[in-house]
């Protein structure tokens, strides 16, 4: 197992870091890691999405660097979530949605008809906008993925996976005494971390996060952001957010979407300090949005 190969990270006490985030100026929290240092395994090429006759996304091409956080920003309805959902083919579940172009993971086309979407989603996990724990116990929520994929040979394995996933999500200390109580009884931030633990439990390579903090209060948001930063060590993370500060705080690479088009992408620091496009600049300075 992978547990022992890296530290699980200290649990996040709710009171430990509240002051650290929202009030701080954007610039200080921007990480200075060069995304080019991390090779890209996930690439997209000319991706367009249509809902019926309506085109929602226009020819998006972007490389996602390995083991780092990439943020998609843009005003609502700009197609960033749509694009995110293409990456693990969640758009398949929407009636009348059609995707063209190439999305490749390790050179393998994700829209290849021979590719198994079940396996794909095990490799590319997803965390949703609103915390959506299943109406089951905390343990069962995390165990769900390993169970369906048959990842645990026996009960002990399963318990180990659940524990390590909860630890990685920084939730274990808070819930270790009530693993068998319903996951819906947790606070919003805890629920979202539970959902992250649930995604981690399957052992994905990429984790997609669709505005994971939009339903949370600032303190819970800060905790999740720190968690994302921790996870970057082991996972490739793509986060969709409408909060520029959040993108600036957690991501190394940022892509700006507007009206279904990818306007600009690059290292986060560059995008925020020195955008090439006027529209990006307008958005960042709050003139559109």
């Amino acid at each position: 197992m992978t547990t022992d190969t890296f530290s699980a990270g200290a649990p996040f006490a709710m009171s430990a870091s509240p002051t650290a985030v929202p009030a701080e100026p954007v610039k200080e929290t921007v990480r200075t890691i060069d995304p080019a240092a991390n090779p890209a395994r996930l690439r997209t090429d000319d991706v367009s999405v249509f809902y019926g006759d309506k085109q929602a996304l226009f020819d998006v091409s972007i490389d996602i660097p390995e083991k780092s956080v990439s943020a998609f920003i843009g005003p609502s309805g700009c197609g960033k979530s749509t694009f995110l959902r293409c990456i693990n083919r969640m758009n398949d579940t929407i009636e009348g949605c059609r995707v063209s172009g190439d999305i490749t993971l390790d050179g393998e086309n994700l829209y290849d008809p021979r590719l198994d979407v079940v396996e794909l989603r095990a490799r590319i996990g997803m965390v949703f906008q609103k915390p959506n724990p299943f109406p089951k116990s905390i343990f069962e929520n995390v165990a769900y993925g390993p169970r369906i994929h048959g990842l645990a040979g026996n009960k002990a394995d399963l318990e180990e996976i659940v524990e390590s996933s909860l630890k990685k999500a920084g939730l274990f200390e808070e819930v270790k005494d009530r693993l068998h109580q319903p996951g819906t009884g947790l606070s919003g931030g805890q629920q979202q971390r539970l959902c992250i633990a649930r995604a981690i439990a399957v052992g994905p390579e990429v984790i997609l996060m669709d505005e994971p903090c939009s339903a949370l209060d600032p303190i819970a948001t800060a905790v999740i952001e720190e968690l994302i930063d921790e996870l970057r060590e082991n996972y490739t993370i793509i986060i969709v957010t409408h909060s520029m500060q959040q993108a600036a705080r957690v991501s190394q690479k940022t892509a700006f979407f507007h009206l279904g088009k990818l306007i600009e992408e690059g290292p986060t620091e560059e995008i925020f300090t020195n955008p090439r496009e006027k529209r990006t600049q307008d958005y960042i300075t709050g003139r559109i949005g």
């Binding site: 693990n88 969640m90 579940t93 079940v118 396996e119 794909l120 989603r121 095990a122 996990g125 997803m126 949703f128 609103k130 959506n132 724990p133 299943f134 109406p135 769900y144 993925g145 369906i148 994929h149 959902c195 649930r198 995604a199 399957v202």
Partner: peptide, 14 residues
Amino acid sequence: PQAMRDGSLGLGAT
């Protein structure tokens, strides 16, 4: 809620 379905499908459940 649709979110339940998405949550499960997103984990790779059939």
